[in-house]
Design a protein around this nucleic acid. Structure first.
Length: 401
RNA sequence: GGGCAGGUUCCAGAGUGGCCAAAUGGGGCGGACUGUAAAUCCGCUGUCUACGACUUCAUAGGUUCGAAUCCUAUCCUGCCCA
């Protein structure tokens, strides 16, 4: 595969179409690395496989010696990217920004070489703009252009409020490209508008416009929406091997080919082999196991991948209760006064993220099992003893000790 | 600035004095089935010291035996006019 083909693999949108070839040629002639821009908002950062799609592409550039510039949008975060969801965000404290940036970069380092990245904060230049300069910027973009953007257009036609400052978001993000003289801006396809606005602004500032490269949006566990923390459908880069494996197994079958292409690092041959097996009618579960194993291997290691698969098979596929893996929990650590307590209390101690009402419902609905016997009475008194095995819902297995 | 419409539980969206913790759908959760897939069926979906109590229908007051529903003020949004 040629370098160009490699760089363009899986890319959903590239503008202008042949721009990348020219950029690469120019860079090598001038003997300089290309500046590749990646921006993020320092709101609670939890990177997932969807981000990884973009990051892997970034890594490909990095491996060729190009310069990745990470822009921490500490200024733009105050607005919040109106893409998709439309909630205005609260300003973050400076400490929170720094801390989030640090976690973000720590997670990035799982995929790209952060040691070689330049990290900048866009407050550095955006904070300093005078009103005059802002007006200059605004004069470069028309309302019609902004309304072209899908989410604005949609909200506008549906009479959903759009605050003026939200309209600024793409423009400010675009100005970042001017500031760092980006050669290429990467993002998901949902970033298309923001990125092309970068091109416009660069041209208006007599800079060579950046190439826009948008990666497809990986869909999340629900099989419909893009992977996104707020939709609670992510496979996180920092998930445990078991979770990664299990979550991958739970994706709907129609997502399999998408995951083969975007989430695994199989070779081209291996991929087509998998697709072949899938279309020949093999049980999709087998293919998913291979995908899941591959994913775990990428973010953990081969040993964890094997263990995760074994865990999955035993925990969820085989039906033998006695042989499942139970998390050990000290009875003493539950903070109960007595060893004979209502079932509700025990379960609540074991699953504290749930309200007592929620636990009560779980019990009544038959989600709770004591030593493999269903218990449906929340006030039933149970005598706790070492070795007692409690199962709550599909995933919580606990052995008291 | 004027006129009109509106702000309901995770979302959409009913409800216009008591039968309302609030229809219906979606989502989520749980159970059955299964491949932690899809489809299907059933149940749950404000909180709690739980056959009762408490807090919710933009906010603050008020009328009433009783309000999400009526009145007043305030805040917010959309549309139209200027």
């Amino acid at each position: 595969m040629t370098t160009l083909a490699h760089l363009q693999e899986n890319v959903a949108i590239i503008l202008p179409e042949h721009g990348l070839r020219e950029k690469l040629a120019r860079a090598s002639k001038e003997n300089r690395p290309l500046v590749i821009k990646l921006g993020f908002d320092p709101t609670a950062p939890d990177l997932h496989l969807g981000h990884a799609v973009v990051l892997k592409k970034l890594r490909a550039f990095q491996e060729l010696g190009h310069q990745v510039v990470i822009i921490v949008g500490n200024f733009t975060a105050q607005i919040g990217d109106p893409t998709g969801k439309n909630k205005s965000r609260k300003p973050l404290s400076k400490e929170a920004v720094m801390e989030n940036a640090a976690t973000y970069i720590r997670q990035l380092s799982r995929i790209i070489d952060t040691g070689k990245c330049r990290v900048v904060f866009n407050g550095e230049w955006l904070d300093r703009l005078t009103f005059n300069e802002i007006l200059q910027l605004l004069s470069k973009v028309t309302v019609a252009q902004l309304l072209h953007r899908n989410d604005f257009n949609k909200r506008f036609t549906e009479n959903v409020p759009i605050a003026m400052h939200e309209l600024m978001y793409p423009i400010l993000q675009a100005f970042d490209s001017v500031e760092i003289k980006a050669d290429i801006e990467m993002g998901g396809t949902d970033q298309l508008f923001n990125c092309t606005t970068g091109r416009h602004l660069q041209e208006a500032h007599d800079l060579e416009p950046q190439i826009v490269m948008c990666m497809p949006l990986l869909r999340g566990l629900d099989g419909v929406e893009k992977m996104s923390k707020s939709l609670n459908n992510i496979i996180g880069l920092t998930d445990t091997p078991e979770d990664m494996f299990g979550k991958t197994m739970s994706i709907p079958d129609h997502l399999i080919t998408e995951y083969i292409d975007l989430a695994t690092d199989f070779s081209e041959d291996e991929r087509s082999a998998l697709r072949e097996r899938l279309s020949s009618g093999e049980n999709p579960m087998h293919i998913k196991k291979l995908i899941a194993g591959n994913i775990v291997r990428q973010y953990h290691d081969a040993g964890s991948a094997e263990a995760a698969e074994a865990f999955f098979i035993n925990q969820f596929q085989r039906k033998v209760f006695e042989e499942k893996t139970f998390d050990m929990v000290l009875i003493a650590s539950l903070g109960l006064k007595d060893l004979t307590v209502p079932l509700l209390d025990v379960c609540h101690r074991l699953k504290q993220d749930e309200t007592r009402s929620g636990i009560r419902r779980l019990i009544v609905n038959g989600a709770v099992t004591l030593d493999n016997e269903k218990r449906v009475d929340p006030v039933e008194l149970v005598r706790l003893k070492s070795g007692m095995r409690v199962k709550i819902g599909k995933r919580l297995f606990v052995e008291l000790v």
